[in-house]
Nucleic acid binder design. Structure first.
Lengths: 274, 274
DNA sequence: GAGTGGTCTAGACCACTGT
DNA sequence: CAGTGGTCTAGACCACTCC
């Protein structure tokens, strides 16, 4: 007759109780992905709690990416985005493709490598090119002196149906790439797929790529811009390309919603021989 | 005379306002790391909001890792843990050290490589060895048949002063390692520093290590066990060691609080030559 | 045992959505 | 314009901390 009974339904009294009940309903299939969830008032009546408590539970599940819906609008069970992988093998492939013809590169879809998304007409890319003074951390990695500028390329890939998007920012030392005017032209080709090839046109070969990986919560802007639930972390890759002389020649900051992508890094070890 | 005035202090009315005010006080140095924060009631009076609103603001900052303090106790500005790096270069170093003598390995501190923490008397390691039926995902990676078991080693590294801890779980196919009884002994040596060496004793050379990286929010248990603020994401590495025959021989799941460590992965690219 | 953090009910208001 | 989500004030209770 008390809470130690484990088989009978426990009384729903607190926000965590409501959360558990909703998760159970989804797990049991009573609520399917895409289905509308009853309103806060209806949930409050159904579970015998105050509307505020129901609201808090629904807010929590929205933050966790389980539910979705605009403020003031209806709420539904979120359709989870497909899970993909991003492997550092892509760097080997991209380098091998750099020497191939333009037709071959376009056919293989080099541009897909950085976004890890199939390029379809469903997406539109918004690209911006600017020559700017670099942030101090960028200048430090490039080893730039005061006053030396960088080319900043920002990309927002937006899903036309509003089902999600991804974006990134990349930097190149301006002194390095001004030798080839094509590299300053935003309309020249899909970006940033061919960065390695673009650097090849000015005589630079990439010898090493370093990914620095952190994770943090999405900014409110990222939440709305890239459709990241506010409680889902963002993997942040700072990808630094080094030339064969070991100079940093490109830096790309790539945010990746952690509920969509798994990062894979293979480290090949030398044999013992001895 | 309205909210568009940007220089005058805006009126503090909502929880986000209180959050901004507290962050500003910390940024300006009025509140130093370690300082006590006024109680919810005091903050409510100070900013002219209800105690509930102040409580919500403080809760949010605790979740974000800015403030800290037990429920029911005083609240203080959290001392941010030092930032370290975990590079895949460690794998090369660890392999090179495997052939060295035991003294050399102990002196170089191979065990530090996996934890990325200096081993001091401040820490105590709690290690558990079990032979168990593997979870299905583990069995699949190892390619185990039904009924084949694994050695599971769990480690909790706890800071004696309560300033944080880290932990990990690793799996080895039992059929593989039963050849060397030492590998079943939890007291044999600090773990998991010498896993590569331990596998060497049964004739296995590691040829490739794959790190699969994801991020998610800490479980409530991790929050208390490892002192991770509930709003700080956890980087999760599934480290898979492959033998030179490309068989998976060890799997380690390593959770890393994202506010303490940056992951670094170097990918070396082959030269063009042609 | 007083103080504190956390959270529930209760009622109210606002901004936005969805017809 | 009705419905909905979000959130603030208000008051209350509980568990825990700290002295």
């Amino acid at each position: 007759m008390n809470t130690s009974d484990s088989t009978a339904d426990p009384p729903v009294r607190t926000a965590p109780d409501v959360i558990s009940a909703l998760l159970a309903a989804i797990r049991e299939g009573e609520l399917q992905p895409g289905d509308h969830v009853p309103s806060n008032s209806a949930l409050a009546a159904q579970y015998g709690v105050h509307r505020n408590t129901a609201s808090k539970a629904v807010s929590h599940l929205k933050a966790a990416g389980v539910l979705s819906g605009p403020a003031g609008g209806k709420t539904w069970v979120r359709v989870k985005p497909p899970y993909t992988r991003r492997s550092n093998m892509r760097y080997h492939i991209e380098k091998a493709l750099t020497l191939k013809s333009e037709e071959e590169r376009a056919a293989t879809g080099v541009a897909e490598l950085d976004s890890n998304l199939k390029i379809e007409s469903l997406y539109e890319d918004l690209v911006d090119y600017d020559v700017v003074d670099p942030p101090s951390d960028i200048a430090e990695i490039f080893g730039l002196a005061e006053g030396q500028q960088v080319l900043r390329r920002t990309r927002l890939r937006r899903h036309r149906a509003g089902a999600g998007s991804s974006g990134s920012v990349s930097y190149l030392p301006y002194d390095l790439i001004k030798r080839n005017p094509d590299l300053l032209d935003a309309k020249r080709e899909p970006w940033p797929g061919g960065t390695m090839h673009q650097l090849f046109t000015i005589g630079i070969e990439i010898g090493r790529i370093q990914d620095r990986v952190t994770a943090s919560m999405p900014t409110p802007e990222e939440s709305v811009e890239y459709d990241i639930p506010p409680g889902v972390p963002v993997l942040r890759i700072r990808k630094i390309s080094y030339s064969t002389e070991d100079d940093a020649v490109e830096i790309a900051d790539i945010p990746i919603p952690a509920d969509r992508v798994e990062l894979v890094y293979d480290t090949m070890l030398e044999g013992w021989e001895s």
